[in-house]
Design a protein around this nucleic acid. Structure first.
Lengths: 167, 167
DNA sequence: TATTGTTATACTCTATAACTATA
DNA sequence: TATAGTTATAGAGTATAACAATA
């Protein structure tokens, strides 16, 4: 059982999540897939526009993965990010130019390039600075508390969805 | 209160949402915004790859909005999709070439172009055909039931988030 | 003159193919 | 010969600026 909204007060649940006054709805897989796909497409577009000052979405995502993975090889990073190696070369190149990551040739196998976040890169990550969160954070701020909490739980779900290996 | 799995390491994450042994986690707005942004970026990338056979994400999204709005003007559609008018001109042009929408000059104000889905376009929408849902539908199929239900709620939330007027 | 949409152009992100260097 | 990464090139998708048609 998942508590989407505060379970103690079911009367607020309808108001919080979705528009359907009939309450919880059976959602078919394909319809849900379709809606989720559209929502992700649009939200991504909105987020892409918040370009001023920070990293691009790809850069931010890669930087987060770099820190999480430690010192991944460029290939491993590309796989993790669902991107081809040449694309990752460019992304990492940009991050390197910004001073947020460093490239180190692996001593054991000199074909391999390992990527690590610099101190400055870690700063950027930790502070979540990028200004690009402003729009989202503002939207989240306006949500009812239950919705925001639910969104936290469900974002974790989204994350798992993306991180599955089998594409 | 919502019980959220620790976002730090998905490989150790629990199967369903509510059972993190570390206990409840407070989710700050900015951290949540950051995680949601990354998740959306990555998921969008994954979905973008399912290109075979169907519409591009932009086209699918626009087509869905066209049907929902009835016969929107091109400008209204652009606003709804968070895209500039020139971009929408291109997207609609592609959909028109595919035979899924038709452009009609508004008789009252001949500057205005109204866009409507053709019968074939509505077919495409209804059948949710695009093959591109395959990946997502498959992933959803593997989720525990509770998670899938929760995801339905999340999607509704996401939709509302995107549809807000103030950018 | 103001507004709606289009055309022209450029930038970002990503992909595939070909190449370099190590192994 | 096989592998890791890079360079070269091309194709989406979107943006801004300049333009056309209409009001």
């Amino acid at each position: 059982m998942v508590f989407v909204s505060a379970p103690a007060d079911p009367s607020t649940e309808q108001a919080a999540i979705g528009h359907d006054p009939a309450g919880p709805v059976e959602v078919s897989e394909s319809e849900l897939a379709s809606r989720l796909r559209l929502a992700v497409t649009r939200l991504h577009r909105r987020l892409r526009q918040q370009t001023a000052g920070g990293l691009t979405p790809s850069q931010a995502s890669a930087l987060a993965s770099i820190e999480r993975l430690g010192s991944p090889t460029l290939g491993a990073l590309a796989a993790r990010e669902s991107v081809q190696p040449p694309s990752m070369t460019r992304i990492v190149g940009a991050l390197e130019a910004l001073g947020y990551v460093s490239r180190v040739v692996d001593p054991d196998d000199r074909r391999v390039a390992r990527v690590a976040a610099t101190a400055e890169g870690q700063c950027v990550l930790q502070r979540g600075r990028t200004l690009k969160n402003a729009f989202l954070a503002d939207q989240l701020h306006r949500l009812p508390d239950e919705d925001r909490e639910a969104l936290g739980a469900l974002t974790a779900l989204l994350e798992r969805l993306v991180e599955r290996e089998d594409p």
